[in-house]
């Protein structure tokens, strides 16, 4: 196992990080109007409802942007790691890493699927791999 910087978990975001531990990618869903939102927050900007639940995402999505940070070197990362902005099929976006793909092969519009990767300190992160190699 390896290490990543651990997120700070708040009352508003705990369900997301807890869900990852059981291989669930959860999206916050407004109980008032049914709209989905990420990152999690307490109030629905559409209907102002404070009541929400979580749905499990299919884990499939599309790369809508990506970068390869080259400098400065980051602790816990090998050169050539890819940071991507993925739009899930449910419509919400999250920042993640692409895995099982080389930097040269990353592309806009790439179809990806979630992989739950385990790190030290009980941390699970939702990383994404190309859909066609699963």
């Amino acid at each position: 196992m390896s290490t990543r910087l651990a997120p700070t978990i708040t009352q508003d975001t705990a369900f997301f990080w807890e869900g990852l531990k059981t291989d669930q990618l959860l999206i916050q869903r407004c109980e008032g109007c049914g709209s989905l939102r990420h990152p999690p927050r307490p109030m629905c900007p559409q209907c102002k409802s404070l009541s929400w639940s979580a749905i499990e995402a299919t884990g499939r999505g599309t790369v809508i942007s990506y970068v390869i940070p080259r400098h400065p070197p980051m602790p816990f990362f090998d050169d050539g790691y890819i940071v991507a902005l993925v739009e899930l099929d449910e419509g919400v976006r999250l920042v993640t890493n692409l895995i099982d793909i080389s930097a040269e092969d990353a592309s806009m519009g790439l179809r990806v699927v979630v992989r739950f990767e385990r790190f030290d300190n009980d941390l699970v992160l939702p990383l994404f791999a190309p859909e066609n190699i699963r």
Binding site: R4, A6, P7, T8, P69, V83, L94, V95
Partner: peptide, 23 residues
């Protein structure tokens, strides 16, 4: 300790102003 907003980015190595802008 990461501030809450950075918790969606730093675990993935997106930790510099240059990288935030570039994405």
């Amino acid at each position: 300790t990461l501030p809450p907003w950075l918790s969606w980015y730093a675990p993935y190595g997106l930790m510099t102003p240059a990288s935030w802008v570039a994405l």
